[in-house]
Amino acid sequence: MTNLSDVSAIERLISGVPGTKLDVAAMLSHRNLARQLDSDSAATSSPAHQVQPTTKIPMRRVSEGALVLTPSPRRPPVIRHFEGEQQYEGTVIAINLRDRNFTARLASVNGNAPDEEGEFSLDELNGDENLVVPGALFTWTIGLQSRGQKGQQIRVSDIRFRRLPPVTKEAIAKAENEAEELSAFLLRTAIEAPIIATL
């Protein structure tokens, strides 16, 4: 089994696929997505990703940085490329456990469209439920994925919560230093007396 952290192994595995542009580092950064997509391809498709097969669509160009690959004992189809068609950044506003959904505000990553809102089922998340707290950030991507030897295309919807790494001590110390400096200046120089203005 190929080790997903082994860049050269992945490069070897997909070498020889004609017309494929590789960005293995990006692949590795997308390995969670790859695993998720792999599970979608199984016969028991997960409800987390609404998948509509769209066969007979000619294969499109490879989208840079979006190639994903997942080796598996079940030999799933190789994902040749992923082309995002619509992407939102979302933030959780509220969680409704009774109805098993959460409300989110969505900002389109594509252009300057106005913000949107809507409800998502918690059952869509496949293990990310514990990350759903007010203010949590996620991305919602709809895109075309082509995989398998024949480049079959399917459209996928993927919700992915941002797993923020704990803020490092160094980052906190840096923020504290900058904040302290700014604060000291502002507190020292604030105007005390009422401002008398002319019109």
Binding site: Q50, Q52, T54, E85, Q86, N101, R105, L106, P114, D115, E116, E117, G118, E119, F120, S121, E124, W140, I142, R155, V156, S157, I159
Partner: peptide, 16 residues
Amino acid sequence: KVQAIMSNTIMNRRLA
């Protein structure tokens, strides 16, 4: 097709 898949994922999609 994008709309179709969005409709399957989000409920009550509206402008904020």
